[in-house]
């Protein structure tokens, strides 16, 4: 394990940016912190002082042109694969990338656009010093396992970060840093332990979330279908593909979409298999806690708590899913 004093973060990022494009949460002063390529001289917000939006906005941009047509030909707009380093996403967000990998990269038709940003991306994941009130990482998985999703785990000990390299790439990128002594290592472990809530019984959760439970009606009554839970989520991956005309041809782009929107499943004929707020609320919960575990053995929710904080009507996913289920 290595040590990075907070005063050295700027220098570390400067060094890193010589070989990799650095992506980190930054803010323009007024708004929430957003993941962006860090401009020279810009200081990322990795001290937990501000609400950080999920890194999904970088891995899966809100607007991405898939291809254009020009002179009767299709021009592929797949971005070049570059070397990136993503710093300051939460450990839960790093785990959310594992969920993304299942969706976008598994199977015989991997997504080249996502892959271009993911293939050579060193992940520096953060375990914040202060556990926000909304965080429930430990309810959705084994947080110690999530370390495998990172190149380096950064434990925030207040005035410094303990840096734990998890891969050769991570070790290489942190080799210039000083070593951490045993007391720091112990402090880092103790910090992570605060997020760990024991083993999670995925099956029991799935069984509790019954499809035909009358409770769904009550849960969805106050929902205003704004979809902010899905836009704020680091593991929500649903998107829309649309066309627009442009000078000399057309473009097909993809943009974010949400299962909470009325037109998400609305068919051309006017028929909608999920016609109201209740089936849509249910779909979000079941997709994460039941369908995705059935599909690839992983709960789709990572417990980052963003939906809990962002929801304008205070719907708390933890209360719907129910208490922690330990084996």
């Amino acid at each position: 394990m290595k040590l990075l004093p907070k005063s050295g973060v700027a220098g570390f990022i400067k060094e890193l940016s010589k070989t990799r494009e650095v992506v980190a949460p930054v803010s323009d002063g007024e708004s929430y912190a957003v993941f962006k390529s860090v401009a020279p001289g810009e200081t990322p917000i990795i001290d937990g002082s501000r609400f950080i939006l999920s890194p999904r906005s970088w891995f899966m941009p809100g607007y991405e042109v898939l291809f254009e047509t020009k002179d009767g030909e299709i021009v592929d707009k797949t971005p070049e694969t570059k070397a990136y380093a993503t710093i300051g996403l939460y450990l839960a967000d790093a785990h959310a990338l594992e969920v993304f990998d299942r969706v976008f990269l598994d199977g015989d038709k991997p997504d080249p656009y996502y892959n271009a940003r993911r293939a050579d991306n060193a992940i520096f994941a953060l375990v914040p010093a202060k556990k926000r009130w909304s965080v429930f990482w430990g309810m959705t998985g084994n947080v110690c396992d999530w370390k495998k999703a990172c190149d380096v785990v950064m434990y925030d000990l207040g005035s410094e970060f303990v840096m734990e390299p998890m891969t050769d790439r991570g070790a290489e990128l942190t080799k210039s840093l000083a070593d951490a002594d045993d007391s720091k290592k112990a402090a880092a472990d103790a910090l992570l332990a605060r997020y760990d809530e024991g083993e999670v019984d995925v099956k029991a959760i799935g069984e509790r979330l019954m499809w035909d439970n009358p409770k769904w009606e009550e849960v969805s009554r106050k929902c205003v279908a704004c979809g902010v839970c899905t836009y704020g989520c680091p593991s929500c991956s649903c998107f829309d593909m649309r066309d627009d005309l442009k000078c000399g041809g057309a473009e097909r782009y993809r943009c974010l979409d949400s299962c909470q929107h009325a037109d998400f499943t609305l068919m051309g004929s006017g028929y909608n298999p999920r016609p109201g707020r209740m089936p849509r609320t249910r779909q979000r919960l079941l997709h994460k806690f039941k369908y995705q575990p059935e599909q690839f053995g992983m709960i789709g929710c990572v417990g980052c708590g963003r939906c809990v904080e962002l929801c304008p009507v205070g719907i708390d996913i933890r209360k719907i899913v129910g208490g922690k289920e330990t084996k």
Binding site: D28, S57, V224, G227, Y231, L256
Partner: peptide, 15 residues
């Protein structure tokens, strides 16, 4: 600059 951030989730309309 502000509208460049917009993801068109229409949450402002919904709420």
């Amino acid at each position: 600059k502000e509208f460049d951030k917009c993801v068109r989730c229409y949450a402002c309309r919904q709420v």
